[in-house]
Design a protein around this nucleic acid. Sequence first.
DNA 1: TGGGTGTTTATGGGATAGCATGGGCCGGTA
DNA 2: TACCGGCCCATGCTATCCCATAAACACCCA
Lengths: 165, 165
Amino acid sequence: MAVFLSTYVNKVDRKGRVSIPAQFRQSLAKSSLPGTIYLWPSLNHQALEGADQDYLDVLSDSLESPDLDADEREMIETFIFGKLVPVSLDNEGRIVLPRELAEFANIGEEASFIGRRKTFQLWEPNALKAHEAALRDQVVRKDISLSQIVAKAQRGAAGRAGEGA
Amino acid sequence: MAVFLSTYVNKVDRKGRVSIPAQFRQSLAKSSLPGTIYLWPSLNHQALEGADQDYLDVLSDSLESPDLDADEREMIETFIFGKLVPVSLDNEGRIVLPRELAEFANIGEEASFIGRRKTFQLWEPNALKAHEAALRDQVVRKDISLSQIVAKAQRGAAGRAGEGA
DNA sequence: TGGGTGTTTATGGGATAGCATGGGCCGGTA
DNA sequence: TACCGGCCCATGCTATCCCATAAACACCCA
Protein backbone atom coordinates (compact mmCIF):
# COMPACT_ATOMS: atom_id res chain seq x y z
CA MET A 1 0.00 0.00 0.00
CA ALA A 2 1.16 3.51 -0.71
CA VAL A 3 2.74 5.51 2.13
CA PHE A 4 2.29 9.27 2.21
CA LEU A 5 4.70 11.49 4.15
CA SER A 6 5.59 15.18 4.45
CA THR A 7 3.73 18.33 3.68
CA TYR A 8 3.58 20.05 0.30
CA VAL A 9 1.84 23.25 -0.76
CA ASN A 10 0.84 23.33 -4.42
CA LYS A 11 -1.08 25.76 -6.59
CA VAL A 12 -4.54 25.22 -7.91
CA ASP A 13 -4.79 26.67 -11.40
CA ARG A 14 -7.72 28.35 -13.10
CA LYS A 15 -9.00 25.00 -14.27
CA GLY A 16 -8.98 23.59 -10.77
CA ARG A 17 -5.93 21.41 -11.35
CA VAL A 18 -3.33 20.54 -8.68
CA SER A 19 -0.12 18.62 -9.00
CA ILE A 20 0.06 15.57 -6.79
CA PRO A 21 3.46 15.81 -5.08
CA ALA A 22 6.03 13.67 -6.88
CA GLN A 23 6.76 11.73 -3.70
CA PHE A 24 3.13 10.78 -3.41
CA ARG A 25 3.09 9.70 -7.04
CA GLN A 26 6.11 7.48 -6.58
CA SER A 27 4.40 5.89 -3.67
CA LEU A 28 1.19 5.48 -5.65
CA ALA A 29 3.12 3.72 -8.38
CA LYS A 30 3.16 0.64 -6.14
CA SER A 31 -0.59 0.75 -5.70
CA SER A 32 -2.83 -1.62 -7.59
CA LEU A 33 -4.40 1.29 -9.49
CA PRO A 34 -1.54 3.77 -9.82
CA GLY A 35 -3.26 6.39 -11.97
CA THR A 36 -6.24 6.95 -9.67
CA ILE A 37 -6.74 8.33 -6.19
CA TYR A 38 -9.89 8.67 -4.14
CA LEU A 39 -10.96 11.82 -2.36
CA TRP A 40 -13.64 12.44 0.24
CA PRO A 41 -14.53 15.08 2.84
CA SER A 42 -12.91 14.46 6.21
CA LEU A 43 -15.24 13.34 8.99
CA ASN A 44 -13.47 15.45 11.58
CA HIS A 45 -12.01 18.45 9.84
CA GLN A 46 -12.84 20.96 7.19
CA ALA A 47 -10.41 19.18 4.89
CA LEU A 48 -10.27 16.42 2.34
CA GLU A 49 -8.92 12.95 2.76
CA GLY A 50 -7.25 10.97 0.03
CA ALA A 51 -6.06 7.41 -0.43
CA ASP A 52 -5.34 4.79 -3.02
CA GLN A 53 -7.36 1.79 -4.14
CA ASP A 54 -5.65 -0.57 -1.72
CA TYR A 55 -6.57 1.48 1.32
CA LEU A 56 -10.20 1.58 0.26
CA ASP A 57 -10.19 -2.18 -0.12
CA VAL A 58 -9.04 -2.51 3.48
CA LEU A 59 -11.67 -0.05 4.60
CA SER A 60 -14.29 -1.93 2.65
CA ASP A 61 -13.27 -5.19 4.26
CA SER A 62 -13.49 -3.75 7.75
CA LEU A 63 -17.08 -2.81 7.05
CA GLU A 64 -17.86 -6.51 6.89
CA SER A 65 -16.55 -6.98 10.41
CA PRO A 66 -19.19 -8.02 12.96
CA ASP A 67 -17.47 -5.84 15.59
CA LEU A 68 -18.82 -2.66 14.09
CA ASP A 69 -21.98 -1.09 15.44
CA ALA A 70 -24.75 -0.64 12.94
CA ASP A 71 -24.58 3.13 13.24
CA GLU A 72 -20.81 3.19 12.76
CA ARG A 73 -21.27 1.20 9.59
CA GLU A 74 -24.08 3.47 8.51
CA MET A 75 -21.87 6.53 8.98
CA ILE A 76 -19.01 5.16 6.97
CA GLU A 77 -21.28 3.96 4.22
CA THR A 78 -22.92 7.35 3.99
CA PHE A 79 -20.09 9.78 4.59
CA ILE A 80 -17.12 7.97 3.13
CA PHE A 81 -18.34 5.72 0.39
CA GLY A 82 -21.26 8.01 -0.31
CA LYS A 83 -18.97 11.00 -0.88
CA LEU A 84 -15.99 9.26 -2.41
CA VAL A 85 -14.79 10.68 -5.71
CA PRO A 86 -12.29 8.80 -7.86
CA VAL A 87 -9.97 11.20 -9.67
CA SER A 88 -7.38 10.24 -12.23
CA LEU A 89 -3.97 11.77 -12.79
CA ASP A 90 -3.16 13.39 -16.13
CA ASN A 91 0.16 12.99 -17.89
CA GLU A 92 1.75 15.67 -15.71
CA GLY A 93 0.64 14.03 -12.49
CA ARG A 94 -2.20 16.45 -11.78
CA ILE A 95 -5.78 15.92 -10.72
CA VAL A 96 -8.81 18.13 -11.12
CA LEU A 97 -10.18 19.01 -7.70
CA PRO A 98 -13.91 18.34 -7.78
CA ARG A 99 -15.60 21.69 -7.18
CA GLU A 100 -17.83 20.41 -4.40
CA LEU A 101 -14.88 19.06 -2.46
CA ALA A 102 -12.79 22.18 -2.94
CA GLU A 103 -15.64 24.24 -1.54
CA PHE A 104 -16.07 21.93 1.41
CA ALA A 105 -12.42 22.39 2.38
CA ASN A 106 -12.48 26.06 1.41
CA ILE A 107 -9.57 25.53 -0.97
CA GLY A 108 -8.85 28.41 -3.31
CA GLU A 109 -5.61 29.11 -5.12
CA GLU A 110 -3.41 26.86 -3.02
CA ALA A 111 -3.75 23.50 -1.35
CA SER A 112 -1.62 21.82 1.32
CA PHE A 113 -1.04 18.10 1.05
CA ILE A 114 -0.15 16.49 4.36
CA GLY A 115 0.86 12.84 4.45
CA ARG A 116 -0.68 10.60 7.09
CA ARG A 117 0.99 7.34 6.13
CA LYS A 118 -1.82 5.34 4.57
CA THR A 119 -3.86 8.37 3.64
CA PHE A 120 -3.23 12.05 3.13
CA GLN A 121 -5.20 15.21 3.72
CA LEU A 122 -5.79 18.28 1.62
CA TRP A 123 -6.23 21.58 3.43
CA GLU A 124 -6.58 25.22 2.69
CA PRO A 125 -3.03 26.25 3.74
CA ASN A 126 -4.02 28.73 6.45
CA ALA A 127 -6.57 26.34 7.90
CA LEU A 128 -3.86 23.73 8.17
CA LYS A 129 -1.55 26.15 9.93
CA ALA A 130 -4.27 27.01 12.42
CA HIS A 131 -4.97 23.35 13.00
CA GLU A 132 -1.30 22.62 13.59
CA ALA A 133 -0.94 25.53 15.98
CA ALA A 134 -3.83 24.24 18.05
CA LEU A 135 -2.32 20.77 18.16
CA ARG A 136 1.11 22.07 19.09
CA ASP A 137 -0.42 23.87 22.04
CA GLN A 138 -1.62 20.53 23.27
CA VAL A 139 1.81 18.99 22.83
CA VAL A 140 3.31 21.69 25.04
CA ARG A 141 0.50 21.65 27.56
CA LYS A 142 0.62 17.88 27.98
CA ASP A 143 4.42 17.81 27.77
CA ILE A 144 4.39 15.04 25.21
CA SER A 145 7.56 13.59 23.77
CA LEU A 146 8.17 11.01 21.12
CA SER A 147 10.27 8.62 23.20
CA GLN A 148 7.56 8.69 25.85
CA ILE A 149 4.95 7.59 23.35
CA VAL A 150 7.09 4.83 21.89
CA ALA A 151 7.84 3.58 25.42
CA LYS A 152 4.16 3.63 26.29
CA ALA A 153 3.18 1.65 23.21
CA GLN A 154 5.94 -0.88 23.79
CA ARG A 155 5.07 -1.33 27.47
CA GLY A 156 1.54 -2.03 26.36
CA ALA A 157 2.67 -4.53 23.74
CA ALA A 158 4.91 -6.33 26.26
CA GLY A 159 2.03 -6.51 28.72
CA ARG A 160 -0.28 -8.07 26.17
CA ALA A 161 2.39 -10.58 25.14
CA GLY A 162 2.72 -11.59 28.82
CA GLU A 163 -1.04 -12.18 29.16
CA GLY A 164 -1.00 -14.51 26.25
CA ALA A 165 1.70 -16.78 27.72
CA MET B 1 19.01 -0.46 13.71
CA ALA B 2 21.63 2.24 13.31
CA VAL B 3 23.24 3.75 16.42
CA PHE B 4 24.28 7.39 16.40
CA LEU B 5 26.90 8.76 18.80
CA SER B 6 29.05 11.89 19.29
CA THR B 7 28.70 15.42 18.04
CA TYR B 8 29.84 16.79 14.69
CA VAL B 9 29.61 20.28 13.22
CA ASN B 10 29.42 20.44 9.43
CA LYS B 11 28.93 23.19 6.89
CA VAL B 12 25.77 23.79 4.93
CA ASP B 13 26.65 24.94 1.42
CA ARG B 14 24.82 27.39 -0.82
CA LYS B 15 22.62 24.62 -2.14
CA GLY B 16 21.60 23.56 1.34
CA ARG B 17 23.70 20.44 1.37
CA VAL B 18 25.36 18.95 4.48
CA SER B 19 27.68 16.00 4.81
CA ILE B 20 26.37 13.29 7.08
CA PRO B 21 29.23 12.46 9.46
CA ALA B 22 31.13 9.42 8.25
CA GLN B 23 30.49 7.61 11.53
CA PHE B 24 26.77 8.03 11.07
CA ARG B 25 27.03 6.75 7.53
CA GLN B 26 28.83 3.63 8.62
CA SER B 27 26.15 3.01 11.16
CA LEU B 28 23.46 3.61 8.56
CA ALA B 29 25.05 0.98 6.33
CA LYS B 30 23.48 -1.66 8.58
CA SER B 31 20.04 -0.15 8.21
CA SER B 32 17.47 -1.75 5.94
CA LEU B 33 17.52 1.33 3.69
CA PRO B 34 21.10 2.58 3.95
CA GLY B 35 20.92 5.44 1.47
CA THR B 36 17.98 7.22 3.08
CA ILE B 37 17.39 9.02 6.34
CA TYR B 38 14.25 10.66 7.66
CA LEU B 39 14.12 14.13 9.14
CA TRP B 40 11.40 15.91 11.06
CA PRO B 41 11.03 18.89 13.40
CA SER B 42 11.54 17.99 17.05
CA LEU B 43 8.40 18.08 19.18
CA ASN B 44 10.20 19.65 22.09
CA HIS B 45 13.08 21.71 20.74
CA GLN B 46 13.84 24.11 17.97
CA ALA B 47 15.87 21.38 16.28
CA LEU B 48 15.49 18.54 13.84
CA GLU B 49 15.37 14.86 14.57
CA GLY B 50 16.73 12.19 12.26
CA ALA B 51 16.54 8.43 12.09
CA ASP B 52 16.72 5.50 9.73
CA GLN B 53 14.00 3.38 8.20
CA ASP B 54 14.11 0.80 10.98
CA TYR B 55 13.39 3.34 13.69
CA LEU B 56 10.48 4.67 11.70
CA ASP B 57 9.07 1.19 11.39
CA VAL B 58 9.08 0.88 15.16
CA LEU B 59 7.39 4.24 15.44
CA SER B 60 4.83 3.24 12.86
CA ASP B 61 4.07 0.06 14.77
CA SER B 62 3.61 2.04 17.97
CA LEU B 63 0.89 3.99 16.28
CA GLU B 64 -1.12 0.82 15.83
CA SER B 65 -1.01 0.23 19.57
CA PRO B 66 -4.38 0.45 21.35
CA ASP B 67 -2.61 2.00 24.35
CA LEU B 68 -2.39 5.38 22.68
CA ASP B 69 -5.08 8.01 23.12
CA ALA B 70 -6.76 9.24 19.99
CA ASP B 71 -5.24 12.69 20.40
CA GLU B 72 -1.75 11.32 20.92
CA ARG B 73 -2.11 9.38 17.71
CA GLU B 74 -3.43 12.45 15.93
CA MET B 75 -0.41 14.44 17.09
CA ILE B 76 2.08 11.89 15.90
CA GLU B 77 0.37 11.51 12.57
CA THR B 78 0.36 15.26 12.08
CA PHE B 79 3.68 16.31 13.56
CA ILE B 80 5.85 13.34 12.83
CA PHE B 81 4.56 11.58 9.76
CA GLY B 82 3.02 14.75 8.40
CA LYS B 83 6.36 16.54 8.63
CA LEU B 84 8.65 13.63 7.96
CA VAL B 85 10.89 14.15 4.97
CA PRO B 86 12.80 11.25 3.48
CA VAL B 87 16.16 12.50 2.21
CA SER B 88 18.63 10.40 0.31
CA LEU B 89 22.40 10.62 0.46
CA ASP B 90 24.28 11.56 -2.69
CA ASN B 91 27.49 9.87 -3.76
CA GLU B 92 29.47 12.05 -1.39
CA GLY B 93 27.33 11.16 1.60
CA ARG B 94 25.48 14.46 1.72
CA ILE B 95 21.82 15.34 2.06
CA VAL B 96 19.99 18.49 1.11
CA LEU B 97 18.35 20.07 4.12
CA PRO B 98 14.72 20.76 3.22
CA ARG B 99 14.23 24.49 3.43
CA GLU B 100 11.28 24.50 5.86
CA LEU B 101 13.16 22.23 8.21
CA ALA B 102 16.30 24.35 8.12
CA GLU B 103 14.17 27.40 8.89
CA PHE B 104 12.39 25.64 11.72
CA ALA B 105 15.69 24.85 13.40
CA ASN B 106 17.16 28.21 12.41
CA ILE B 107 20.06 26.47 10.69
CA GLY B 108 22.19 28.69 8.48
CA GLU B 109 25.75 28.01 7.37
CA GLU B 110 26.55 25.34 9.91
CA ALA B 111 24.72 22.47 11.55
CA SER B 112 25.56 20.38 14.59
CA PHE B 113 24.81 16.68 14.50
CA ILE B 114 24.38 15.13 17.91
CA GLY B 115 23.89 11.38 18.23
CA ARG B 116 21.13 10.14 20.47
CA ARG B 117 21.54 6.40 19.95
CA LYS B 118 18.58 5.42 17.78
CA THR B 119 18.06 8.93 16.48
CA PHE B 120 20.15 12.03 16.13
CA GLN B 121 19.42 15.73 16.28
CA LEU B 122 20.43 18.60 14.07
CA TRP B 123 20.86 22.01 15.71
CA GLU B 124 22.02 25.44 14.87
CA PRO B 125 25.42 25.23 16.65
CA ASN B 126 24.87 28.11 19.06
CA ALA B 127 21.40 26.91 19.93
CA LEU B 128 22.85 23.53 20.78
CA LYS B 129 25.46 25.10 23.03
CA ALA B 130 22.80 27.06 24.87
CA HIS B 131 20.68 23.97 25.22
CA GLU B 132 23.58 21.97 26.61
CA ALA B 133 24.44 24.70 29.08
CA ALA B 134 20.87 24.77 30.35
CA LEU B 135 20.81 21.02 30.72
CA ARG B 136 24.08 20.97 32.59
CA ASP B 137 22.65 23.44 35.06
CA GLN B 138 19.86 21.02 35.77
CA VAL B 139 22.27 18.17 36.28
CA VAL B 140 24.05 20.15 38.95
CA ARG B 141 20.90 21.46 40.55
CA LYS B 142 19.20 18.07 40.74
CA ASP B 143 22.45 16.32 41.62
CA ILE B 144 22.02 13.65 38.96
CA SER B 145 24.62 10.94 38.55
CA LEU B 146 25.04 8.12 36.09
CA SER B 147 25.37 5.28 38.61
CA GLN B 148 22.19 6.46 40.29
CA ILE B 149 20.29 6.21 37.04
CA VAL B 150 21.56 2.74 36.20
CA ALA B 151 20.68 1.51 39.68
CA LYS B 152 17.20 2.98 39.44
CA ALA B 153 16.51 1.37 36.07
CA GLN B 154 17.71 -2.02 37.29
CA ARG B 155 15.55 -1.86 40.40
CA GLY B 156 12.61 -1.18 38.13
CA ALA B 157 13.40 -4.08 35.81
CA ALA B 158 13.69 -6.48 38.73
CA GLY B 159 10.31 -5.35 40.01
CA ARG B 160 8.60 -5.95 36.70
CA ALA B 161 10.19 -9.38 36.32
CA GLY B 162 8.79 -10.26 39.74
CA GLU B 163 5.26 -9.28 38.73
CA GLY B 164 5.36 -11.56 35.76
CA ALA B 165 6.37 -14.66 37.71
C1' DT C 1 61.33 7.86 13.60
C1' DG C 2 60.23 10.47 9.88
C1' DG C 3 58.98 11.15 5.38
C1' DG C 4 56.18 9.81 1.76
C1' DT C 5 52.04 7.80 -0.31
C1' DG C 6 47.44 6.48 -0.78
C1' DT C 7 42.72 6.80 1.00
C1' DT C 8 38.81 8.77 3.09
C1' DT C 9 36.25 12.90 4.19
C1' DA C 10 34.35 17.31 3.73
C1' DT C 11 33.46 20.78 0.59
C1' DG C 12 32.61 23.36 -3.88
C1' DG C 13 30.75 24.02 -8.60
C1' DG C 14 28.76 22.85 -13.30
C1' DA C 15 25.68 20.16 -16.11
C1' DT C 16 21.43 17.70 -16.52
C1' DA C 17 16.97 15.72 -15.64
C1' DG C 18 12.65 16.02 -13.21
C1' DC C 19 8.94 18.68 -11.41
C1' DA C 20 5.33 22.22 -10.79
C1' DT C 21 2.88 25.25 -13.43
C1' DG C 22 0.67 27.65 -17.28
C1' DG C 23 -1.44 27.84 -21.77
C1' DG C 24 -3.47 26.08 -26.06
C1' DC C 25 -5.99 22.73 -28.98
C1' DC C 26 -9.59 19.56 -30.04
C1' DG C 27 -13.75 16.94 -29.48
C1' DG C 28 -17.93 16.27 -27.29
C1' DT C 29 -22.19 18.18 -25.32
C1' DA C 30 -25.91 21.13 -23.88
C1' DT D 1 -22.47 28.08 -30.78
C1' DA D 2 -20.66 28.46 -26.33
C1' DC D 3 -18.79 25.74 -22.73
C1' DC D 4 -16.40 22.03 -20.41
C1' DG D 5 -13.22 18.39 -19.90
C1' DG D 6 -9.37 15.79 -21.55
C1' DC D 7 -4.93 15.80 -23.91
C1' DC D 8 -0.45 17.73 -25.39
C1' DC D 9 3.23 21.11 -25.39
C1' DA D 10 6.19 24.96 -23.36
C1' DT D 11 8.55 27.14 -19.55
C1' DG D 12 11.33 28.24 -15.49
C1' DC D 13 12.94 26.48 -11.40
C1' DT D 14 14.87 23.08 -8.34
C1' DA D 15 17.09 19.09 -7.20
C1' DT D 16 20.11 15.44 -8.59
C1' DC D 17 24.15 13.61 -10.52
C1' DC D 18 28.90 13.94 -11.62
C1' DC D 19 33.50 15.66 -11.30
C1' DA D 20 37.17 18.45 -8.85
C1' DT D 21 39.90 19.95 -4.81
C1' DA D 22 41.89 20.27 -0.28
C1' DA D 23 42.57 18.74 4.20
C1' DA D 24 42.97 14.99 7.53
C1' DC D 25 44.26 10.61 8.38
C1' DA D 26 46.27 6.04 8.27
C1' DC D 27 49.63 3.16 6.56
C1' DC D 28 54.02 1.69 4.83
C1' DC D 29 58.78 1.55 4.22
C1' DA D 30 63.27 3.13 4.60
